[in-house]
Amino acid sequence: MNLPVVWLPEAVAELKEAAAWYSNVRPELGIRFAQAIDATMENISANPLLFAVADRNRRRAGVRRFPYGIFFIDEPNRIVVIACFHGKRNPRHWKTRPSNPS
């Protein structure tokens, strides 16, 4: 059973920023990034417990072929994505985020 996914606004903004950056480098790279994100989200939704705990109850799923991680919380009835984060950025930004969308 795939769980529904809810994105925090900050995570959506990060995803859009990354997608725009890759599209500006090369349009087909932006498409590949979007496909990699989609595949990662499918895996998270289907099997959230397969991914390692990164901080407290927050898990991280790597995005294949891109230096990004999807940080999320697996709740009983949904997945809450708290960050779409480049691996070289300071993790303090996503670690201070609330775990529940308003």
Rank of each mutant, 00 (worst) to 15 (best):
L3R: 14
T96H: 05
P101I: 09
I44A: 04
D38E: 14
L15T: 01
P101A: 12
V6R: 06
P9C: 01
T96E: 08
N57T: 13
P76D: 14
P4I: 04
R59D: 03
S45D: 04
P27Y: 06
L50P: 05
A34Q: 11
N47Y: 12
C84Q: 00
R65N: 15
A36L: 04
P48I: 12
N47T: 10
G69W: 02
E14D: 11
R92W: 01
P27G: 04
F33A: 01
L3D: 00
F71H: 15
F72H: 06
F71S: 02
A19S: 11
P76M: 09
G69T: 00
N77V: 13
S23H: 05
A61F: 09
A61H: 11
W7S: 03
T96P: 00
V81R: 02
D74E: 14
P27I: 00
K95N: 01
G69H: 06
P91I: 08
R78K: 15
L50G: 09
I37D: 02
N100R: 14
A39L: 10
G62L: 10
K88Q: 15
P9R: 07
G62H: 09
P76I: 07
N77M: 11
A61G: 04
L49A: 14
K16W: 01
G87E: 13
G69S: 15
F72V: 07
P27T: 03
D55K: 12
K16I: 01
I70K: 10
Y22K: 02
I37Y: 09
G69V: 02
A20S: 10
T40M: 09
L3Y: 12
A61C: 11
C84W: 03
G30S: 07
A54L: 10
A18L: 05
N100L: 10
P98V: 04
C84L: 15
I82K: 03
A18V: 04
R97V: 13
F72I: 08
F72K: 09
N57K: 14
A19R: 10
A83S: 13
V63F: 13
Y68V: 04
A11Y: 02
Q35W: 03
K95W: 08
L8R: 13
R26G: 01
I73Y: 08
L8Y: 08
A83H: 13
E42H: 15
E28P: 02
P4Y: 11
F85C: 07
L3C: 02
R92A: 13
P9A: 05
V63W: 12
